[in-house]
Design a binder for these strands. Sequence first.
DNA 1: CTGAAAGCGCTAACAT
DNA 2: ATGTTAGCGCTTTCAG
Lengths: 338, 338
Amino acid sequence: MTKHHVSLKDIAENLGLSISTVSRALKDHPDIGKDTIEKVKNLAREWNYTPNPLAMGLLRQQTKTIGVIVPDLVTYFYASIISGIEQIARDNGYYVIIKSSYESFEKEKECLEHLLLSRVEGLIVCLSQETNQFEHFDNIIKNEIPLVFFDRVCRTDEVPSVVADNREASLQITRHFFEGGARRIAFIAGPQHLNITRERVLGYQDGLRECGLEISEDLLQYINLSTEEARNATQKLLSLEKIPDAIFGINDMIAFEAMKEIKKAGYKIPQDISLVGFTDDYHATVTEPELTSVMHPTFEMGQEAARLLLRQSQEKERVFPSQVILKTKLIIRSSSVK
Amino acid sequence: MTKHHVSLKDIAENLGLSISTVSRALKDHPDIGKDTIEKVKNLAREWNYTPNPLAMGLLRQQTKTIGVIVPDLVTYFYASIISGIEQIARDNGYYVIIKSSYESFEKEKECLEHLLLSRVEGLIVCLSQETNQFEHFDNIIKNEIPLVFFDRVCRTDEVPSVVADNREASLQITRHFFEGGARRIAFIAGPQHLNITRERVLGYQDGLRECGLEISEDLLQYINLSTEEARNATQKLLSLEKIPDAIFGINDMIAFEAMKEIKKAGYKIPQDISLVGFTDDYHATVTEPELTSVMHPTFEMGQEAARLLLRQSQEKERVFPSQVILKTKLIIRSSSVK
DNA sequence: CTGAAAGCGCTAACAT
DNA sequence: ATGTTAGCGCTTTCAG
């Protein structure tokens, strides 16, 4: 039902020229006569000619498309990272196809296949929370299709990646709690197989050691990243014989849910329990009290990932897989300051 | 740097067959011998053959791609709508290219051009808040490129669209306030040229009339949708000689900002001032008090928009532009119940 | 200065 | 049962 797009052939026929002449005229080829160039360009403008990207792609054997897989599309964190990717992609003439794994390993594999069918020239991926085996990337790595992981990463000795300074950030949070007087600092973490969990736990434990605090199993909860498990974990912490006086949520959503449960149980934040999140979603400022959180440079993370990817496709040689570590910043608000 | 993709030609040469035989064998064409089919399919599997979508697109003159323009990518509202669009698109074998206008009229026009260069087969658009003239869609409408607007719409007599029952929802909010005892009900609305503003203002005024309340200019604030203007508008309302006893924010973000300002000014919600938002973002449950809000069926809105679009490209005849109006539901929480 | 021809990967009508 | 050819839109030798 869409009208026929005008092609070089249409212009050539109308002007009594050959297709190649028209093609050259549009590119100001030095061989072509001035008046021919003008005639061609005028008609092209008048008829609103634009080159057919499919034909170009076929000719050049490139789709100018990169694929992105994120665990979900509806949180600020990923949306903001995608914005960063899109900006760099657009500036370099690339299109972006975005897929969501919906935090499912199976869906992640489907996304991968689908993107390969589309002949994407590269892939930027954040693992689903279920993903704890990584063979589905074998093909991509073997075929040298450019690939970059961000935030939740794997196979970092083979694949470039972008992450936050998770360990350092968690260390700082622990320190911040300690300086505020906390002595029983709890951590609601994600699935153990995720690097973000492992790294943040390490930083958390670094902090405990540094502050001379005991590392207690009770205070470290590994959960799936869902509102329900966040609430359960909080309840568990609040039902300990000695409840924590500080809770660190591995992301803001977890912290929000913890906040609700803490209030519901009748405790005051930060007087009874200090609370800190991770990501610094806009909504950290709408809660009462406002949530202290680690500012995660999301837009930059997207940009960095896209840049790493484009660099890979440009290099002839295999690039030594690098990891870009982005600095975070602890934004202190009232949820952690008595 | 990516390895060469295997083509029908590669398979044909290896097997000493012609390209067309291979093509037919893969489709189980009845003319082709059983053993030939098997040989071809085996090699295709072994070499991991997949058809080149560019070649197919060129042949069939279709990109199987639809373009989406949203005002931003980082709010739950649009992210969720995009999810709905993607689902329907994927189920029908379409790709989706997402663009953000960043609430700018100029950027919106750029997005449009860029998408047309990509030869999208259809467009789903939510207007930027700056957009108050609509000639940039002339070409698309004239060329009969399928187009659907959602939420913030225009030219509804020419273009199909999906909206919420804005007027009805606002009427219900006003009623709800009145029943809770409110008599000076304020509305922080968006730019006047947006349909969502106009319709919600109408519903608001319907409600005031129904409840026998005076329609006061002071209580209706038109603003640009930004956190800053939301705060200013709230301050203005709070500095009136007689301050409002209820405030309706045109979206949750506006309501969140109003909540902060109201608290800062020392008023209690809902005792002094009731508050209601619109969209029902997840974060409505993390504020204190939790925010009453209109549940806006975002995922369904995306689905509907995509369905309307696909229907357009399938129909031979021009479809009479229809408008799908989605039901909303007022979710009552503590910000509006004394 | 311009045109003809080949080729990117694929399908389908037309041979054989 | 299989091959040949033309063509989708474009660029790029190679020939005039």
